[in-house]
């Protein structure tokens, strides 16, 4: 009885094992990169909004402080989306006839909510509190990026756990004095790590062991 396979089939069989291993490694690499990609984290992706609100104009151009609109950021877990009344503080007289702002005026007239699209959406199993971050010297810009340059709003960072841990492991690399919390384009007056270490002590920021404990964020 003659052989069914030619003897080169041995090499093909062996090579296919190597190829399979390479393919698995490649698939692993793609999944690893993919799970961190902007496509998955939705970072740097502009969300469509009912009104094309420009932070670049309001913060960069007019110089409004973040807290003018996001009033609860220092007191609450949530940096509130401003109620329509805050828009109308100025837009009761400015851009009165603009069709772009009609949804804002309609919301004010009818006492209905504007349905903004959420840009930063943490998973519900994460406990996050804005007020403590602000109180401990984490600037708005540190997480949200140069909002004063965003014509339409996007999420600057991945908001993935490894990204949170960058700072929870080494807060001294990121914290700034409280008076510069809302400053955009902040430059530390000296060496960041040196200033950071002083601030960590001054603001009683807890040690990385506590900050990276599971139940600090998952409770």
């Amino acid at each position: 009885m003659s052989q069914i396979f030619h003897h080169t089939a041995n090499y093909i069989a062996k090579m296919s094992l190597v190829l399979l291993a390479a393919l698995l490694l490649f698939a692993g690499w793609v999944m690893d990169r993919g799970s961190r990609s902007d496509f998955v984290t939705r970072a740097e992706m502009v969300r469509e909004q009912p009104v094309p609100f420009s932070h670049a104009h309001h913060v960069g151009g007019m110089g409004l402080d973040c807290r003018y609109c996001h009033t609860s950021v220092e007191k609450s877990s949530f940096a509130n989306i401003p109620p329509t009344k805050i828009c109308m503080n100025c837009h009761s007289q400015i851009w009165l006839t603009s069709p772009t702002l009609e949804p804002v005026r309609a919301s004010f007239r009818d006492n209905t909510s504007i349905r903004w699209t959420r840009v930063h959406d943490l998973p519900d199993f994460v406990y996050f509190n804005h007020s403590i971050h602000v109180a401990k010297g984490v600037g708005c810009e540190t997480c949200h990026g140069r909002v004063d340059k965003m014509a339409l709003t996007w999420q600057q960072n991945s908001l993935q756990m490894e990204w949170c841990l960058n700072c929870h492991r080494n807060p001294e690399r990121y914290v700034r004095p409280r008076e510069f919390i809302t400053t955009m384009g902040y430059q530390p007056a000296g060496d960041q790590e040196e200033i950071g270490r002083k601030l960590v002590a001054e603001y009683h920021i807890q040690n990385p062991r506590t900050l990276t404990s599971c139940n600090t964020c998952h409770r």
Partner: peptide, 21 residues
């Protein structure tokens, strides 16, 4: 399910009340 749990966080809309809040 864990990412979007059936609970209300601030400003999450609701279909229960007529004003959507």
């Amino acid at each position: 399910d864990m990412h979007d749990q059936p609970k209300f966080i601030p400003l999450r809309p609701s279909t229960f009340f007529s004003d959507g809040r």
